[in-house]
């Protein structure tokens, strides 16, 4: 359905955000937040609770006061200095964590809300089209309380896309969905956004959702963007120890305590004050030469085991194909390239 995608002059640089600053009562919630997004790209804003994710979304949508910064969407200025475009003129779709469906309106009325003033036939056509798009055909007369969580979310999607917004913002859209249906719903929604080339930012605190849904991930910590990259790059090459810990990328060993026997080749130059990241699946367990370690615990993880071992007085987690008894001895060798992580 080409009707949903917006016809834009330039394909790249659909959303430009420069130096956004938001504060409540002198408390800085968002600091120098800058972001660029291409048309059709899906960005995940990832971070622990209270890091300012939702504030960032609301700032983009114009739902709260922004002290400083510039926002541009497909060449249209949304915010610059004292100028603020009111939210209803921004062409932004928003899906709230609780979906915010109007409880006194049917599914069809919810979807039609943004279409006021259009001819009746056109409205009915869009309702039908959007219901089909989210697979809710036949449910247009239902009320929100008569829908399941997943159906409510689909309704929210259909409503948000009804007036063809240029940008879709989603605030923890999957947090109220049962884990059994979450995966299929995510891939379905991603397919939909891709099919219609919709630019989207979504917020979550679960890295699995970033992996499954986003093209790009931005890590936010205490109001500041730490790293913006593909999800894989962020997971495998975190910029600093916060990102590594938040993404649970692997074992972080202070560089000064790194046993040299663990590595096959001599280590390259690195910053001694930082950390070395050792991925859990990068170890050989019974090497001829290496660092001695003792198994503390062995957990079955489905086809694989996760060992907790003590090496050199430090606790490490290691992935293994085989089971080991507690107290058994291992000779460890790290076969991947170590990743250096700033403090």
């Amino acid at each position: 359905m080409t009707s949903i995608s917006s016809n834009t002059p330039n394909a790249s640089g659909s959303l430009n955000i420069e130096q956004l600053n938001v504060a409540f009562d002198d408390k800085k919630i968002l600091q120098d937040f800058s972001l660029n997004l291409n048309e059709g790209e899906i960005l995940c804003l990832l971070g622990p609770s209270g890091c300012g994710k939702t504030t960032a979304l609301k700032a983009i949508a114009g739902l709260l006061e922004v002290q400083q910064g510039k926002i541009e969407l497909f060449g249209k200025l949304l915010k610059k200095n004292a100028f603020e475009l009111p939210p209803e003129k921004r062409d932004i779709g928003f899906i709230f964590q609780d979906y915010a469906l109007f409880p006194h309106m049917s599914v069809a009325q919810n979807i039609a809300f943004s279409l006021k003033g259009q001819p009746k036939a056109a409205i009915e056509a869009i309702i039908k089209q959007n219901l089909a798009m989210v697979h809710l055909d036949g449910l247009q007369e239902r009320y929100p309380h008569e829908l399941s969580g997943g159906q409510q979310q689909r309704t929210a999607v259909a409503r948000a896309l009804a007036n063809r917004p240029k940008l879709l913002l989603m605030d923890e859209p999957f947090s109220n969905i049962d884990s059994q249906v979450k995966q299929s719903l995510m891939s379905e929604l991603r397919g939909l956004l891709k099919e219609h080339n919709i630019t989207c930012i979504f917020v979550t605190h679960a890295k699995q959702e970033a992996f499954a849904f986003a093209d790009k991930t931005a890590i936010l910590n205490q109001g500041k963007l730490v790293q913006v990259d593909s999800s894989q790059k962020i997971y495998e090459q975190p910029k600093d120890s916060f990102v590594a810990k938040f993404m649970e990328s692997g074992n972080l060993i202070p560089c000064q305590q790194l046993p040299t026997k663990l590595f096959a080749k001599p280590l390259p130059e690195h910053d001694e004050s930082g950390f070395c990241l050792l991925h859990e699946n990068g170890f050989v367990l019974n090497a001829e030469q290496g660092e001695k370690a003792v198994v503390k615990d062995c957990l079955y993880m489905g086809y694989r085991y996760r060992l907790e071992v003590t090496m050199n007085g430090q606790s490490l987690f290691i992935e293994s194909d085989n089971r080991f008894d507690i107290h058994s001895e291992l000779t460890l060798k790290y076969q991947h390239q170590p990743v250096w992580v700033a403090k």
């Binding site: 928003f94 109007f102 409880p103 006021k116 948000a160 009804a162």
Partner: peptide
């Protein structure tokens, strides 16, 4: 959220009062 949703869907304050707040 309902007000925010309404505004992002293009409704002004007047319409939000009469089509969302009052019916609710």
């Amino acid at each position: 959220h309902l007000e925010h949703a309404g505004r992002l869907l293009g409704a002004d304050e007047r319409r939000i009062f009469f089509s969302i707040r009052l019916p609710l």
